[in-house]
Simulated scan of single mutants.
Amino acid sequence: MKRKLKLLLLLSLSVFLVIIILKKPKNSIPESIEQEARIALGHFPELNGIPIEFKFKKNIKKSVMQAQPTWSGLLKPKNKRSYVILISEKFKISGEEFKTVDVPKDVLIGWLGHELGHVMDYQQRGNLNLIGFGIRYVLLKEFIKKAERAADSFAVSRGMSEYILKTKRFILDNSEIDETYKTRIKQYYLSPDEIMEMVKELDSIKGNG
């Protein structure tokens, strides 16, 4: 009896995995942020054909947005992966909740661009490396810093510096945004000055090219 149960569970798991692998994900963008998402995606031609779902979530701990590979994507070659970008429905300013979609357009584009920078980073990693990435991100603060700065760098190098800067300034210059969130931004992400320096370096490279 136990053997039959084990075989049944194994068969069920196998069928589940086959369904996940064969299921073809598609791009999905909520209408309320479609324009901003399309603008951000336009800066990442390398992601054309990569299924990305933009999905609202009631609450995301310690963040406003979060990019991650889908479980089915981890079972496929990286050129066939799919991703989801989770977006918190609301965030707090001075204890009051505001809808994320109500932030200035360029700020929202910058936020989305940063998350697409994460997707660019993920796309350069093998499946095992990506799983290790997730584990290190949860356990190591220094790795969080490395990952967030890499996402910023990808977005800036794709011509999104103005959007990223507006997002940073919206957070850091807003006296009513929670100081804990500001501290996290200062600790783990590129500063506005570092972004400007990076832009100068990129312009210099282009000028010499």
Results as ranks from 00 to 15, higher is better:
112 L>S: 14
72 S>K: 03
14 S>E: 09
188 Y>I: 01
42 G>E: 13
36 E>V: 07
64 V>P: 05
106 D>I: 12
59 N>T: 02
81 R>P: 11
149 R>D: 13
122 Y>W: 08
199 V>N: 12
11 L>H: 01
114 H>G: 00
136 R>H: 04
193 D>R: 14
147 A>H: 06
104 P>L: 05
158 R>E: 10
66 Q>V: 09
24 K>H: 01
35 Q>K: 09
130 L>I: 03
188 Y>M: 00
112 L>F: 15
169 R>I: 03
6 K>F: 03
107 V>I: 13
40 A>I: 07
39 I>A: 02
140 L>C: 05
13 L>T: 08
53 E>A: 06
128 L>T: 15
151 A>D: 07
149 R>E: 13
145 K>V: 06
81 R>L: 05
62 K>L: 11
150 A>F: 10
43 H>M: 01
8 L>S: 04
99 K>D: 02
87 I>V: 12
108 L>W: 15
22 L>R: 15
180 T>R: 15
82 S>R: 05
33 I>F: 11
208 N>C: 00
144 I>P: 02
151 A>V: 07
50 I>A: 01
123 Q>Y: 07
102 D>T: 12
180 T>S: 12
32 S>E: 07
130 L>Q: 05
111 W>Y: 15
43 H>S: 04
74 L>P: 08
114 H>T: 03
203 D>T: 09
159 G>A: 08
108 L>V: 13
169 R>Q: 11
74 L>S: 10
70 T>A: 02
156 V>D: 13
180 T>C: 00
191 S>Q: 10
155 A>N: 09
126 G>N: 11
150 A>D: 08
36 E>K: 14
128 L>H: 04
99 K>F: 09
18 V>T: 15
76 K>L: 10
127 N>K: 05
197 E>V: 10
129 N>T: 12
20 I>G: 14
63 S>M: 01
193 D>L: 07
69 P>H: 14
63 S>H: 06
83 Y>T: 00
167 T>H: 14
194 E>S: 08
121 D>M: 04
192 P>R: 06
37 A>L: 03
81 R>D: 03
107 V>A: 13
60 I>Q: 05
118 H>I: 06
158 R>H: 15
67 A>E: 10
41 L>T: 11
202 L>H: 06
8 L>M: 01
199 V>G: 09
64 V>Q: 01
189 Y>T: 00
70 T>E: 12
131 I>T: 06
27 N>A: 01
50 I>D: 04
96 E>D: 04
118 H>R: 04
24 K>D: 00
148 E>R: 08
7 L>A: 05
11 L>V: 04
127 N>Y: 04
75 L>R: 15
104 P>D: 14
134 G>S: 09
110 G>S: 11
92 K>W: 08
185 I>P: 00
22 L>M: 11
196 M>W: 02
208 N>H: 01
70 T>D: 09
10 L>F: 11
